[in-house]
Structures are given as C-alpha cells and as structure tokens.
C-alpha cells in the first residue's frame, strides 16, 4: 500500500528491432485497486525519433514529463538540434541522481534512433542508474510479467511490422496478469522514415 511505485499502477516496455525501435505503455491511472482514468499515457515524444517512458507514482510521472519537456526544449534552442537518445539517457540519469536523497518514484525508459539511425534503448532505477540493453527494457507494476512475455516472444532483428506485433502481445498479455495495469495501451513504432502511433483496444476491466 505505502509503496509509492504501486499506488497508481502502470507499465511500459521498449524493444529493439532491425533499424527500428518500439516503445509502448498502458493507459491506466489508478488509486490502488480503483481505476481513476483510462487516458493516462506514460510514453512521451522528446524528438523526431526519441521517446521517454515513465511509470511509477503518477504525480512524479507528470512532474518529470514537464521537467524533461522543459530541459529538452531548452537544449533544442541552445544547440539548434535535437537531443540524441544517448544524451537524453544521461540527462535523465543526472536529473534523477540530483534527487538522490529524496527521489522521484519512477522507473523511466528511453528509446530512440541515434545518429545514423542506430537503435538505442535503456532503463533506469529511481535514482538514475542506467540499464543498457540490446533487446528490451521493461518497467512498471507489470514488469515481472513483462520480463516473462518479452523473454518468450522477443527475437532479434524484427522488421517494424513484426516488432509491433511482438511488443503489443508482450504488453497486452503482461498487463492482463497485473491488476494495476491495462485499461488501454499505446504503441509507437519508430523507423528512420516515420513514427507510427497505434492505440490498442484492450479489455476494460
């Protein structure tokens, strides 16, 4: 009950494919077992091909989303270019560690295409320790379930269409086994050419 990570619920996942990445989240916002809203997205676009996912305590999700929106916009104005996913990852890390002794209760993930379309994904703990991964990153109250579904469904070098199917099934089947996640889902599939956003219809119970 008093664990801030599982008051509001929610899940997010990112995957690497062949010259593409996908990042997805559920849209539930709850207050323990009560569902408050089914329109609470947890993945935010930071650049043309760069995305930030935030799960955990919903107030901190909103606060950090706004904080990184500010920092990202100032960066774009200063440097006259977009932030690389790797740079965003380091910014997230340092920003979280600034609150080392009074942390935001979130588990962020970053996914994007770097210079030359290089796929990049990573995750963080609440004080900013980066978890670099080659395949997939999970986060949220359904992270245990997501590890299971991702381990069994993921394969390397998937084309964008197959990656969409894989990440969607991984997320949907994981959140169905978590009482605090679900209530809709959003999936982004990112290639050098385009970003495709799909809203998934899920069970609404």
């Amino acid at each position: 009950m008093s664990d801030p990570f599982s008051i509001n619920g929610g899940a997010a996942v990112a995957m690497v494919g062949k010259d593409c990445i996908a990042i997805a989240c559920d849209t539930r916002l709850g207050s323990q077992s009560l569902g408050l809203a089914n329109n609470f997205e947890k993945v935010f676009q930071m650049g043309k091909t760069t995305f930030l996912g935030l799960t955990g305590l919903a107030t901190d999700v909103i606060t950090l989303r706004e904080d990184f929106r500010l920092k990202n916009n100032l960066y774009k104005l200063r440097e006259e270019r977009e932030m690389e996913p790797k740079t965003l990852a380091n910014l997230v890390s340092t920003s979280l560690y600034e609150r080392r002794f009074g942390p935001y209760f979130v588990s962020p993930i970053v996914a994007g295409l770097g210079k030359g379309g290089q796929p990049f994904i990573c995750g963080f703990d609440l004080i900013g320790c980066i978890d670099f991964a080659k395949d997939f990153i999970v986060s949220g109250t359904a992270s245990d379930q997501l590890y299971g579904t991702c381990e069994s469904l993921y394969e390397p070098n998937l084309e964008p269409e197959d990656l969409f199917e894989t990440i969607s099934q991984a997320l949907l089947n994981a959140v169905d086994r978590d009482a605090l996640s679900g209530w809709g889902a959003v999936v982004y599939v990112v290639t050098k050419e385009k970003v495709v956003r799909r809203v998934l219809r899920t069970r609404q119970d």
Binding site: R78, E79, T87, N90, L91, S93, T94
Partner: peptide, 12 residues
C-alpha cells in the same frame, strides 16, 4: 559533461 556525459560542442 556532468549532465550529458559528453564534452560540449565548440559553440556551446
């Protein structure tokens, strides 16, 4: 560098 873990571009 302590924020982005990379050195600043010349202009910055």
């Amino acid at each position: 560098k302590r924020i982005y873990n990379e050195y600043p571009p010349v202009k910055i």
